[in-house]
Amino acid sequence: MRRILAIGGGGFTTEKEPSLVDAYIHRLIDKPRPRICFVATPSGDNRAQIDKFYEAYGSLDCEVSNLPFFNGWGPNVIPYTDFKPHLLSQDAIFVGGGHLRSALAVWREWGLDVAMKEAWNRGVLLAGMSAGAMCWFETALGGPFEQGNYGVQRGLGLLPGACAAHYHNAHVSERRVNLLAEMHRGLIPSTLAIDDFAAVLFEDQQLVKTVSWASTSTAYRVRQQNGCVEEAPLTAVPLQESLIV
């Protein structure tokens, strides 16, 4: 089964305590000592982000590695000159947050976009937060966020439609405001908008589950209908319930 977990925000890169969403990814893989590779290209292979990945998934008893294109930091680094066999042998690939446009350009230059698609078709779980959530869609809405320029980008196209992350974020409220304004002007397509502390699971391109680990977080179908922009919230399952054996 081809599966993708798109996380609006949260997880090991931003939460101080072990996150339920990282435990959820481990549960989705559902095997002893799963192999998971971290791709931190959107952050320019930020060392702190890579360290947090190793700490979080190492503590979950995963066999961890990372694929860097800029900074070869990490105890189990995969060479960018020969990454495809490694990726195809993984149980999961996790893409971190950061600058999506730059990451997409690097991936296409090195052929990682093709390898990601092949891994997905072979049943490797693809997951990611923020840029790592939006990248899988046909259209990604990843900044800058000034009015008239919402950063519409061509994603990897594994999932149909458009995606936006950090939707209801009190610290960056202009994300939602500008998305709604630009959609009303007809400049942005219908979008799956995901809050911080929420994630959406796809199986074979079908949205099958929305989960959250904060009481007010969920995902929304945002679209223009009859001249108005509608925000339809999806029913989110509390992640604590999804982790019950």
Rank of each mutant, 00 (worst) to 15 (best):
R3S: 08
I7R: 01
G8R: 01
G9P: 06
T13P: 15
P18I: 05
V21A: 07
A23P: 14
Y24S: 11
I25Q: 05
H26G: 11
P34C: 13
C37M: 13
F38L: 10
S43C: 08
A48V: 15
F53C: 09
E63L: 14
P68Q: 12
F70N: 11
V77F: 05
P79F: 02
T81F: 14
F83S: 07
H86P: 02
S89P: 09
D91T: 10
V95Q: 02
G97W: 02
L100Y: 05
R101W: 02
R101K: 13
S102L: 04
L104R: 03
R108W: 02
D113I: 09
E118C: 09
A119H: 12
A119M: 02
R122W: 03
G123P: 12
V124P: 07
V124F: 07
M134S: 04
W136T: 00
W136F: 12
T139P: 05
L141F: 02
G142P: 00
E146W: 04
G148K: 07
N149W: 01
R154S: 03
A164V: 05
N169G: 04
V172I: 04
V177L: 14
V177D: 13
E182G: 04
M183R: 04
G186P: 02
P189Q: 03
L192D: 01
L192R: 03
D204C: 06
Q205A: 08
Q206C: 13
K209V: 08
T210G: 11
T210A: 14
W213F: 10
S215T: 14
T216E: 14
S217Y: 06
A219P: 13
Y220A: 04
R221W: 05
C228A: 15
V237I: 15
Q240E: 15
E241P: 08
